[in-house]
Write a protein that binds this DNA or RNA. Structure first.
Length: 497
RNA sequence: GCGCUCUUAGUAUAGUGGUAGAAUCUCGGGUUUCCAACCCAAGGACGCGGGUUCAAUUCCCGCAGGGCGCACCA
């Protein structure tokens, strides 16, 4: 049977095989921007998280977890309250919603709009008779659109669901600093949900209103940023860098250069920041993304977030959505701790000696590597999706596949073959190898099912198995089979990793 | 959020003013010595609400959700 190699086939696969379902709750028609993961999707996600946690331990990171709800003052200090509430103009006639500041700037290019109050903007609107671009109805009032989800805690405390995990990590700084015993940089990450009330969420799990972030933070001194020991171990690595000056010249082909070269050329300013790019790259390649589907795109100065001094997006090339950001690497400077120090009146505790001279105190700099787990899941599925001849092969890295191995009896109507297969399946489970057992349909069909889930190996018990205690072990990608002793199975499966 | 457009089994679809047809799928049975085979049998759908009508999955309106375009994406 011919399988169409197109995006529709992919989109139905991720539903059919239980990777991604939604928008949830489906039986009630769904709420835009909310999705659920089925068993296969969740297994994949957990495997990604395990890989990250294992590798980050190697890089010396610790993990924390903070509440997803924080009082208003936190977001006032972080700048999110101000920056996440957009001034919008909504048309009384046609209902169009438009960003007030951007539209005003466009209409009045000679006026400085940035920093004006709502009232000042409203005056400008009246004075210049600014009207709806769709239907020409004059605008009147500026309303606010809050990208943060607001809630009440207790009787009357205003709080917000966190729009990023990073800020909640920063609030632990005193504690982390005690914990670190003056070993800098402090390397910490947090995994968890963040919430953004997107105006129109689209593109499956790429822009959800509730999503998972996995954010790494380095708390580091200014001296160490420029003279960073671990940089020397990684500086020879080459990364495809697309800096904003290239983009300005309409070039979209990245320069594949070493981090050392990038520093020398001034494309990157700080060795410690280069190290962050490297960690992002290391984890991405570890997940199995093909090198040629990855690039690093620098934000132009006016694209950067309010806290960022430098920002690069780690992007993956997809068929359906083009380049997709799966990770943002930000130089947040001392912005966050300075703000939280002031608002919480803890500036003294945040002002610490981090360099060689204990008399020189400073507010730590923060370098951040922020992954979106849902985007990793989507891009891994899409880049791994292959239609080969008459089958779908989901080329996930063995370690990430929902099932590690599937065990089949060659035929299902021979009791002793089926029983031996079951025994092998249970034996693998005893070894805590993620085994899946299946008798339904023909042997070929069962292989196909596992190919669609990315299962790296299938073990088949046949007539010979009954005689000589051997089974065949089939490789997902080559479909080649080896005959091996049953006792060697766990060992043989390990080889796939 | 606006405009256009769409929504039928798990998936992808055909079709109709008198409640739906094939494919694939799932389950049971048979057959089968390795890649979606075959045979038998079964299961499963018109997004939600309202209106018009004797009768609405079909026509109209609203809502929700999706796609595309605009806007938004710190």
């Amino acid at each position: 049977m011919k399988i169409e190699d197109n995006i529709e086939t992919f989109n139905s696969l991720i539903k059919r095989r239980g990777f991604i379902w939604g928008p949830s709750p489906e039986i009630y028609g769904g709420l835009a921007g909310f999705f659920s993961y089925g068993p296969a999707g969740m297994a994949l996600k957990n495997n990604i998280l395990s890989l990250f946690r294992r590798e980050l331990r190697y890089f010396g990171f610790g993990e924390v977890e903070c509440p997803t709800i924080m009082p208003e003052v936190v977001w006032r200090a972080s700048g999110h309250l101000e920056r996440f509430i957009d001034p919008v103009l909504s048309c009384k006639e046609c209902g169009s919603l438009i960003r007030a500041d951007k539209y005003l700037q466009e209409q009045l290019p000679d006026t400085m709009i940035d920093g004006l109050s709502f009232e000042q903007m409203e005056n400008l609107i009246k004075k210049n008779k600014i009207a709806c671009p769709k239907c020409g109805t004059p605008f009147e009032k500026i309303e606010e659109y809050n990208l943060m989800l607001k809630t009440k805690v207790g009787k009357n405390t205003t709080a917000y669901l966190r729009p990023e995990t990073a800020t909640t990590t920063y609030l632990l700084f005193n504690r982390l600093n005690q914990d670190a015993r003056r070993q800098y940089p402090i390397k910490i990450y947090q995994y968890g949900k963040a919430y953004r009330n997107e105006i129109s969420p689209r593109q499956l799990v790429l822009r959800m209103r509730a999503f998972d972030q996995f954010e790494l933070q380095l708390f580091i001194g200014k001296e160490q940023e420029m003279d960073f020991e671990e940089y020397h171990e990684i500086k020879k690595n080459k990364l495809p860098l697309l800096d904003w000056k290239l983009q300005d010249k309409n070039i979209d082909k990245p320069n594949i250069i070493s981090l050392e070269e990038a520093i020398k050329k001034g494309i990157l300013k700080k060795p410690a920041y280069a190290y962050c790019l490297y960690i992002g790259h290391y984890l991405t390649i570890k997940l199995g993304f093909p090198e040629n589907a990855v690039r690093y795109r620098q934000h132009s100065p006016n694209e950067r977030a309010h806290y960022a001094d430098d920002a690069w997006d780690l992007e993956i090339l997809t068929k359906q959505f083009g380049w997709v950001e799966i990770c943002g690497i930000h130089d947040r400077t001392d912005y966050d701790l300075r703000q939280h120090g002031e608002f919480s009146k803890q500036t003294k505790q945040f002002n610490i000696a981090m360099g060689s001279d204990p008399k020189i105190k400073e507010i730590p700099q923060i370098l951040e590597i922020a992954f979106g787990i849902d985007r990793i899941i989507y891009t891994l599925l899409e880049t791994g999706f292959n239609v080969e001849e008459e089958r779908i092969n989901l080329k996930l890295k063995s370690e990430l596949a929902p099932n590690t191995v599937a065990v089949f009896p060659l035929v299902r109507n021979k009791k002793n073959i089926k029983n031996l297969a079951l025994k092998i399946h249970n034996g693998l489970l005893e070894h805590r190898i993620g085994s899946f057992f299946d008798v339904a349909g023909s042997i070929g069909k069962r292989y196909r099912r596992q190919d669609e889930l990315g299962t790296p190996v299938c073990v088949t018990v046949d007539y010979d198995s009954l005689e000589d205690n051997t089974v065949t072990i089939r490789d997902r990608d080559t479909m080649k089979q080896l005959r091996i002793k049953i006792s060697k199975l766990p060992e043989e499966i390990q080889k796939k990793f």
